[in-house]
Amino acid sequence: MAPGEAFTHEQTERIERARQSAQTQTGIRFAVRVGALDGDLKLAAERLLGGLADPRNDEAVLVAVSPGQRFVRVVTTPAAKKRISDSAAGLAALAMTSSFALGDLVGGVITGLRQLSDAAGAPAAPTGSRR
């Protein structure tokens, strides 16, 4: 396999649409990263999320997939953790690994994003809109 692009433009578009949809439905910022992780895999994924979001205030989720290491990590900021519990993240990770084991990286990521957005639900309505 030659180095460079791992996905076709169409595959990247499909993941981007799923990510956008999850973000719109939940109000949580989602990011997907596919590539190798260095050192401690969990810690590396958490560091990546630390570079993306303010851990105290932002609701953000990172899905880090390392196909070479056969590892996927869903990381949620403390604010996002209130809406996506660790068990819900675990179910999404399980769904993803099921697809990855069959060689379907794109399908797995899309399924995972959908599960995470379903678990989070719609963003809380602003207090001013309550009657």
Partner: peptide, 16 residues
């Protein structure tokens, strides 16, 4: 942002 691990972060891992 500092690329430090987020304190109190949640989530889950999986392998295949």
């Amino acid at each position: 942002r500092s690329r430090a691990a987020v304190p109190g972060a949640g989530g889950a891992s999986g392998t295949w």
